[in-house]
């Protein structure tokens, strides 16, 4: 290029990567040189086209796959432990319910008690 600046200078000018003094020199030159201005514009358009048409989205599922691989294993309960926990919680609720029933509604409690012993008795008879 028969000008004071190389294409590298123009490209670096576009990216604001020239030393301050050089930047000002290029800027002044561009004002009076249509050829270099055109070159700069071509570079600008090339960058813009790549930004708009060169970017690709992450393939579906890739991010999720990577995040799943990160999840610490200690956070995931062992299945037997998980079932044990569910059983313990259920038993706890039933026991607490029974205790509460006896304390606050003794009539209903004894009724249920009789029903259960009655059912157990009929079971015993049929055997």
């Amino acid at each position: 290029m028969a000008h004071e600046f190389s294409l590298e200078d123009l490209s670096a000018f576009l990216d604001d990567e020239l030393p301050a003094e050089r930047h000002l020199q290029v800027e002044a030159h561009l004002r009076s040189c249509p050829a270099c201005s055109r070159e700069l514009e071509r570079f600008e358009k090339a960058g813009a086209a790549f930004r708009e048409h060169g970017r690709r989205p992450l393939p579906a599922g890739l991010l999720g796959r990577m995040l799943r691989r990160l999840r610490p294993k200690s956070f995931k309960l062992d299945p037997t432990l998980e079932w044990g926990l569910i059983l313990a919680v259920t038993l706890g609720i039933v026991l607490a319910g029974g205790v509460a029933l006896k304390a606050y509604m003794p009539g209903l409690f004894s009724q249920i008690q009789q029903m259960i012993s009655g059912a157990a008795g009929s079971l015993g008879q049929s055997n």
Binding site: L7, E8, R42, A46, G47, F50
Partner: peptide, 9 residues
């Protein structure tokens, strides 16, 4: 970068 931009242009 210059080569990439020149080719794109």
């Amino acid at each position: 970068l210059v080569r990439a931009r020149t080719l794109l242009a």
